[in-house]
Simulated scan of single mutants.
Amino acid sequence: MIEVYFDGASAGNPGPSGAGIFIKGNGQPERYSIPLDEMSNHEAEFHAFILALEICLEKQFQTVSFRTDSELVNRSIEKEFVKSKQYKPLLERALLLTQQFHLFFLKWIPSSENKNADELARNAIRQASKKQKDMDH
């Protein structure tokens, strides 16, 4: 089974954000640091999840277990509901993607078990900040 750890991070709320995705169970571990636009931490978590789903579908993984330290994302997917209107389109997109797997699991884990994805998300913020500085000059 493929295990996917994901994390979204934001430097400020909102602020420059990044997604970190760590995939293991298919040979060599795969690491992704993906810079995101300015957004809140919760938005970054949802975007990281959606990107992780898309990567797994592109790679044609069919049995996938996702891990997150975001209680909001975990609860929203479990209940297929989110209170805040701003997260509704993100939740709907994520739910559509989850339906494309043969077996899909999402499990909440403490942040201490999500260090790889967290580090990757922070790297993505640094990439986004550097890119912004380069554009400003």
Rank of each mutant, 00 (worst) to 15 (best):
Q100N: 06
E80T: 01
T68W: 05
P110L: 13
K115N: 03
T98E: 13
F105M: 03
D136S: 04
A117H: 08
M1T: 11
M39V: 06
E71F: 05
S70N: 07
M39P: 01
T68L: 01
I77L: 14
F105R: 10
E119Y: 11
F46C: 03
G12P: 12
V73S: 03
E45L: 04
Q28I: 11
S65R: 14
M1W: 10
D7Q: 15
T63D: 13
F104W: 04
N123F: 06
L53W: 03
E58D: 11
P89C: 13
F81C: 06
F46H: 03
L91C: 06
K79G: 03
L53S: 02
Q127H: 12
N74R: 12
V82T: 15
C56W: 01
A11M: 05
S40G: 06
G18T: 08
L57F: 02
L51Q: 07
V64C: 09
H47R: 14
P110N: 07
A52E: 00
E71R: 13
N41M: 01
K59F: 03
F61T: 02
K24P: 05
E113H: 14
M39D: 09
V82F: 05
M1K: 10
E43D: 00
A48K: 05
E78V: 08
S33H: 07
A94V: 09
F61H: 08
E54I: 11
S65D: 12
A52T: 00
A124L: 00
G12K: 08
E92F: 15
H102V: 07
R122D: 09
F61N: 02
S111A: 12
A9P: 12
H102C: 00
G18Y: 09
E45K: 08
S111L: 07
W108P: 03
K130N: 06
F61I: 02
L120I: 01
A44T: 01
K107V: 10
S33Y: 07
I50Y: 00
P89D: 09
I23A: 04
K59A: 06
D69I: 09
E54G: 05
E43S: 03
